[in-house]
Design a protein around this nucleic acid. Sequence first.
DNA 1: GTCTATAGCGGGATAGAC
DNA 2: GTCTATCCCGCTATAGAC
Lengths: 186, 186
Amino acid sequence: MSTPERLIESTRELLWERGYVGTSPKAILERAGAGQGSMYHHFKGKPDLALAAIRRTAKEMCATARGVLGGPGTPYERIEAYLRRERDVLRGCPIGRLTMDPDVVGSDDLRGPVDETIDWLRERLAEIVEEGKEQGQFAPSLDAREIAATVLSTVQGGYVLARASGSPAAFDAGVRGLLSLLRPAS
Amino acid sequence: MSTPERLIESTRELLWERGYVGTSPKAILERAGAGQGSMYHHFKGKPDLALAAIRRTAKEMCATARGVLGGPGTPYERIEAYLRRERDVLRGCPIGRLTMDPDVVGSDDLRGPVDETIDWLRERLAEIVEEGKEQGQFAPSLDAREIAATVLSTVQGGYVLARASGSPAAFDAGVRGLLSLLRPAS
DNA sequence: GTCTATAGCGGGATAGAC
DNA sequence: GTCTATCCCGCTATAGAC
């Protein structure tokens, strides 16, 4: 792997583990096995490298979700697949966790990819809920975009509950609860 | 207000705004209008002061929730009151945001109050859901503890969505979506 | 391109005067 | 109790050699 590549990958890992404020260039360099010079040759500095890392993580997350949500099955089943898809629950969401970072939220550049990812996810989920309404699987009274927000919130909040307790169980409980509310009567 | 008191309050504010890693003793002292000596006289160091601050925030949050959840109305109405209660959405949850902090999650001392608060909230919500089931307001097929986890997750995740987009709208949408799923047919 | 050296600044804590 | 002085270390960045 090329040096810039290793730098980006190391940054992605550290942003996931420790967030933006908690991630130092030094730690990135150690993990990437590179020297100071390499980093400042390929990137303008910490924010620039972080932006590259965040963009890649955002892209990857959309790709993963696109796969799961575009899979086979009824709308309910695809949402269930998304909610139950394998996750490193205790590590948290590599995108969502960035929203708790004041330096990320305070920078339009860094927040951009985060916002776009979550927004895209929300739209995609809303489409599926809408589809479910048309097929009579979900009640017509439901607002597709609201339900989409609820689904995403349940996931993002599930990480919080899990990390608070140190166990993935709470995440799973929240997901099961939502699915029981969403489940078609049939 | 006494000096230790001011130190704790300043720490609470900074932990909320910037998290644990992002909060320096220096910033706390400036905000509290105190010198280094005061802080190290009253507290053993940053973790000790943070613990005092987190404990107080946790206590306060439980008290607030106790008030809302113990209010008048049907179980559904009390859950709705909790979900819709006034919040500084864009500031995030002062307790939940700590779960994204590796230094907090990595310390049993610091994580303790966070875990207890969320756990207590979950139990309290579960009691209310159970009550609603007994009264026939919620379907008997629902698992009270799972629904409680879903409710909490929706709130915690709502903060994430809101902060990502820079607007409280997404929080509200998630809440409305959950309420529409929870609403008794009546 | 990558390395090391260096720099200025801030984090976190201690010492000791008042 | 509170203050200032001081310490060591790590963060972020720049300079310049190779």
